[in-house]
């Protein structure tokens, strides 16, 4: 595993007024790697992701990205309700001036990647929650980004749909090998999807543990495999001890 770094953060601190969202965070995301950031809600994970994507600038420290082609997937699908699936997925190409025929062909290919080819003419209101999320992933992939930043993409889905989409996302990543960074507050999801899980402390976010997950393909059966469970237990313990430690610090000061 001698990947070069796709993103590296060095001693990154971001303050919003008096609030310190992240403090002295250093991390690297390898090219073609799948990294998950987990932590309690409100800990500053999303700030870290926005810094990685260049949506925000650090107060101090530095952020390096080896190339600029990236795409975001948000917690909500953010589809245009008046457009068909095909035209929604084609939007990034449309905005960068790709011709109609070419963008439709490429959008259709991206839709095939998320297995929605038979829904191409439907509008978002005719899609289920899970399908809308898949559409939003297809839209992120349509411009062939080398980096995919996912901000709790499946948090609003029900358990079954979520497992299904997690499986598809991991499979997609194994095939396409883009670099992926995932924010989630679900430990099992982080361990299932990512190669490396970074555990954040409560705000201000610091990386308190790095856990490598077992390599190899995932299926819905591996959700409960003992190797993944061990990694998940490790991650949960790291997160819990960071929370109790922070609580003790608060009580002491």
């Amino acid at each position: 595993m001698t990947h070069s770094a796709h993103i590296s953060l060095e001693r990154v601190t971001r303050r919003f007024g008096n609030v310190v969202a992240t403090e002295n965070v250093s991390l690297t995301v390898p090219v073609g790697g799948f990294t998950a950031l987990i932590g309690p809600s409100g800990c500053g994970k999303t700030t870290l992701l926005r810094l990685m994507g260049g949506l925000d600038q650090p107060t101090s420290g530095s952020v390096h990205r080896s190339d600029a082609s990236l795409a975001f997937v948000f917690q909500e699908p953010r589809l245009l309700p008046w457009r068909t699936l095909l035209d929604n997925v084609a939007l990034p190409l449309e905005l960068s001036g790709v011709s109609r025929a070419e963008r439709h062909a490429r959008a259709a290919a991206a839709i095939a990647l998320v297995r929605m080819s038979d829904a191409i003419t439907r509008t978002p209101d005719q899609l289920s929650g899970g399908m809308r999320m898949r559409a939003s992933i297809a839209r992120a992939l349509v411009s062939r980004p080398t980096l995919l930043l996912l901000d709790e993409p499946f948090a609003s889905l029900d358990e079954v749909a979520r497992h299904e989409l997690d499986g598809e996302l991991r499979e997609l990543w194994e095939r396409e090998r883009f670099t992926a960074v995932l924010i989630t507050h679900s430990v099992p999801e982080a361990v299932f999807l990512a190669e490396e899980v970074l555990v954040c402390s409560p705000q201000p976010a610091r990386i308190v543990a790095r856990i490598a997950t077992p390599p190899g393909a995932r299926t819905h059966m591996t959700w409960t495999s003992s190797a993944l469970n061990t990694a998940a237990r490790e991650a949960s313990e790291a997160m819990l001890s960071a929370i109790t430690e922070r609580a003790r610090e608060r009580a002491a000061s």
Partner: peptide, 27 residues
């Protein structure tokens, strides 16, 4: 505003945001 952010991320110009997002939203 979330769709506006999406358009900003996709580096859409002001006219593109207006024509492809504001006008349809205003219908």
């Amino acid at each position: 505003p979330k769709l506006v952010e999406l358009f900003t991320l996709l580096r859409a110009g002001r006219i593109a945001v207006w024509w492809k997002l504001s006008i349809p939203s205003a219908v």
